[in-house]
Computed example of a mutant assay.
Amino acid sequence: MPSWFTFKRLLAVLALALVMVLAGLAHEFRLFERAWFPIQEWRHAAQWRDKSLWLPDYRVVIDAQAIDGVKDLSALTYDPQRKSLFTVTNKNSQIIELSLDGRVLRRIPLQGFGDPEAIEYISPGVYVITDEREQRLIKVRLGEGEAPLSSEAAQQLSLGIGLNGNKGFEGLAYDAVGKRLFVAKERDPVRIYEVRGFPHTNPDLPFAVHVVDDPARDAGLFVRDLSSLDYDAHTGHLLALSDESRLVLELNADGRPISSLSLLRGQHGLKRSVPQAEGIASDDDGNLYLISEPNLFYVFRKQAD
């Protein structure tokens, strides 16, 4: 029979192995950074509350409302001219226009888009759609009606950065003043690229594209993946949505997280955790719209002090 000393050594080895496994999981899920962030958020509230969206002040006003007749929704963008939202489905390849209360207004079939994963408003009638697997950015023009839209004659840009299957371009955001298109790579690793020169809007100038990334900055995003992006013109800040971390981060102009909105049950008035968050957008009044697979619609509104 093993001695008591041998048994204690075995327990110590097992305890050490358990600690190492838990530490590895904590690192993988960025639990240390996430646990520390609310303290930083609280400490810097006075500095940022009046010059940011300040996500802790938001509460859900439409909670997990089903969107009739659709599923497999991905991405979300707000059209300030039409006062409506646009999303895409990647299995049956459609653009879907939604009202601000989550009703389907029209459906536009997509042809030749492969794996459409995100859509972003650029200017009246002009949008960019991503093809996730091929890392294509495709400029399209939308008119009225529901006629099919083909990618064949559309302006396109293929980047091919760190190709790794179904972990490509997952989110888009556009800065209309700075003419910057932000492109989110889902994971392995998480990245936010800044693309200048696409879409090409001035035919009198040469077509020149410049892509910028900042791996050190992106390493500070304590999320496991990126599902969607949104750019707030009033503050110059980005919203970064993570499905796996069930979190929305507000990033300042330097890309540093300054506030957060948890998508877990009980947070911000949510009755249940958001199951699979895929798209986020904001309107001119600062209201936040969020969609989750398969067909759930949420609205968050900032509460008065």
Rank of each mutant, 00 (worst) to 15 (best):
K83C: 06
Q47P: 05
G125H: 09
L76K: 01
L73A: 11
E186V: 05
M20G: 09
L247P: 13
G178E: 15
G266W: 10
T87N: 08
E250S: 00
Y289R: 11
S52L: 02
G162M: 12
Y127I: 07
F5W: 14
Y231D: 08
F32E: 05
A281C: 10
G269Q: 00
Y121A: 03
N92R: 10
G102M: 00
E293T: 01
R141N: 04
P124K: 08
A46C: 00
F300K: 08
L110D: 04
V183W: 01
R301P: 06
L263K: 00
Y127R: 09
R49N: 02
R224Q: 14
G269N: 00
H268D: 06
V21N: 10
G279N: 06
L251V: 10
V13Q: 02
F297E: 05
R82F: 04
S3Y: 08
L251I: 13
L296H: 14
G220I: 09
V195R: 12
A45L: 11
S273C: 08
G178P: 12
E244T: 13
Y174W: 11
K83G: 08
F182H: 06
L261N: 08
L241H: 01
D188L: 06
I39Q: 04
T6M: 14
K91D: 13
D285E: 11
S262P: 02
P199K: 11
R133F: 08
G162F: 02
D225L: 05
L229P: 06
E250T: 07
G143C: 12
F198H: 13
Q47L: 12
D213W: 05
Q303F: 10
R141M: 03
R103L: 07
G266I: 10
N295H: 14
L296F: 15
A15R: 02
S245H: 00
S52D: 07
T87R: 04
R224P: 01
R301I: 03
L172Q: 13
H268K: 03
Y121E: 02
S123H: 03
H200Q: 14
L249T: 00
Q111R: 15
K139N: 06
A118L: 06
G255W: 13
A118F: 02
I138N: 01
G269L: 00
E144T: 11
D283I: 00
R133T: 14
Q267Y: 03
G112K: 01
S123V: 02
F207Y: 11
S158Y: 12
R59M: 04
L53K: 03
E146L: 06
G269E: 05
E117L: 00
G197W: 10
L290E: 14
